[in-house]
Simulated assay, not measured.
Amino acid sequence: MTKTAPLPDAAPANWVDRHAPAGLRPWLKLGRFDRPTGIWLLMLPGWQGVALACAMQGRWPDLRLLAEIFVGAALMRAAGCAYNDIVDRDIDAKVARTALRPIPAGQIRVRQAWAFVVGCSLVSLLILLTMGPLAIGLGVGSLALVAAYPFMKRITWWPQAWLGLTFNWGALLGYAAATHELSLPALLLYASGVFWTLGYDTIYAIQDLEDDALAGVKSSARRLGENAPRAILGFYAACVVLAVAAAWSGGLGLLFAPLVALYATHLWMQSHRVRIEQPVLALALFKSNTWAGLILFAALAAGAVRL
Rank of each mutant, 00 (worst) to 15 (best):
4 T>E: 13
7 L>V: 15
7 L>K: 13
7 L>A: 13
10 A>V: 05
18 R>F: 00
22 A>L: 09
24 L>H: 07
24 L>K: 10
25 R>E: 12
32 R>G: 09
32 R>S: 10
32 R>Q: 15
36 P>N: 03
38 G>A: 10
45 P>F: 00
47 W>N: 05
53 A>Q: 15
61 P>K: 07
64 R>M: 09
67 A>E: 13
68 E>R: 07
71 V>D: 08
73 A>R: 03
74 A>R: 07
74 A>W: 02
76 M>F: 03
76 M>E: 03
77 R>K: 12
78 A>L: 02
81 C>R: 05
81 C>P: 09
83 Y>S: 01
84 N>H: 12
84 N>C: 08
86 I>Q: 11
90 D>G: 12
91 I>M: 05
94 K>Y: 00
95 V>A: 07
98 T>W: 05
98 T>V: 09
100 L>R: 14
102 P>E: 02
104 P>Y: 03
109 R>K: 13
112 Q>E: 14
114 W>Y: 10
120 C>S: 04
121 S>R: 13
121 S>L: 10
121 S>E: 08
124 S>W: 06
126 L>C: 02
127 I>S: 02
128 L>D: 00
133 P>G: 05
134 L>I: 04
140 V>S: 00
141 G>W: 01
142 S>E: 00
143 L>W: 00
146 V>E: 00
147 A>T: 05
147 A>P: 00
153 K>G: 05
154 R>C: 07
155 I>Y: 07
157 W>G: 01
157 W>T: 13
163 L>C: 12
163 L>R: 04
164 G>F: 03
166 T>A: 08
168 N>Q: 14
169 W>T: 11
170 G>Y: 06
173 L>A: 11
173 L>T: 13
179 T>H: 03
182 L>K: 14
184 L>W: 14
186 A>Q: 11
187 L>K: 06
189 L>T: 10
190 Y>I: 11
191 A>V: 13
193 G>Q: 09
195 F>T: 13
196 W>I: 06
204 Y>I: 02
208 D>G: 01
215 A>D: 02
220 S>D: 04
222 R>L: 15
225 G>L: 04
226 E>I: 12
228 A>N: 03
233 L>T: 06
234 G>R: 09
239 C>K: 06
239 C>Y: 01
243 A>D: 03
244 V>Q: 02
246 A>R: 07
246 A>D: 11
248 W>H: 13
250 G>I: 11
256 F>D: 07
261 A>V: 15
261 A>H: 01
262 L>T: 09
264 A>H: 09
264 A>Y: 00
271 S>Y: 01
273 R>A: 14
275 R>N: 09
280 V>M: 13
281 L>A: 10
282 A>K: 04
283 L>I: 10
286 F>Q: 05
287 K>N: 12
289 N>R: 09
291 W>Y: 07
292 A>I: 07
295 I>G: 05
296 L>T: 12
302 A>D: 04
305 V>P: 13
